[in-house]
């Protein structure tokens, strides 16, 4: 039995500890907002926050989460940065197919939480690990800046 704290709730799961957090969230807890894109930490679709740090859940064995707080796309709206990013995303119509956007929003809100006014270089550094096949990068950049302005 492994116990993890997800979006403020303690969840017990009966699962092999090697299982990446991504699959525990999706297949065991049915929290499907966090997405599978590559499984090798190259696309960012699976990004969650572990104690606020953006983390690829596809490469994090659930046994290594410990008592650190997991925040997912379903819960990030409860944070100030997450709420602002989500709003900017809708205001600017960042989203196309949306599949990468859970990860983008998680990465962007972690950036905003640590850096209230990121410049282009900061955005590149924080967001280049997240792939968007629909090519929404131009608006993601704008979205982050708008969310920062409305901080």
């Amino acid at each position: 039995m492994i116990s993890i704290q997800v979006n403020g709730e303690q969840r017990d799961v009966e699962i092999d500890g090697d299982t990446p957090l991504l699959w525990v969230l999706r297949d065991v807890l049915a929290m499907t907002g966090t997405k599978f894109g590559c499984g090798i930490a190259q696309c960012g679709a699976c990004t969650v926050h572990i104690d606020g740090v953006p983390t690829r859940s596809c490469r994090l064995p659930v046994s290594q989460v410990g008592d650190r707080a997991v925040t997912t796309i379903e819960g990030v709206g409860a944070t100030s940065a997450g709420r602002r990013i989500q709003k900017a995303w809708l205001d600017l119509e960042v989203i196309q197919c949306g599949y990468c956007q859970s990860g983008q929003i998680m990465a962007a809100s972690a950036l905003l939480a640590t850096n209230p006014s990121p410049d282009d270089a900061d955005i590149d550094a924080a967001m280049s690990g997240n792939i968007c096949r629909c090519g929404t990068y131009v608006r993601i950049r704008e979205g982050i800046k708008q969310a920062a302005r409305h901080g």
């Binding site: 929290m31 796309i73 989500q86 995303w89 949306g98 956007q101």
Partner: peptide, 27 residues
């Protein structure tokens, strides 16, 4: 105009095919 499909895509609610979870599903 703002899109009708995007609000649910910003908060993890939207369900793509990969998110289908019929009861008792195996993987």
């Amino acid at each position: 105009h703002h899109r009708l499909d995007t609000p649910d895509k910003a908060n993890g609610v939207v369900q793509y095919g990969i998110d289908a979870m019929p009861p008792g599903v195996r993987f």
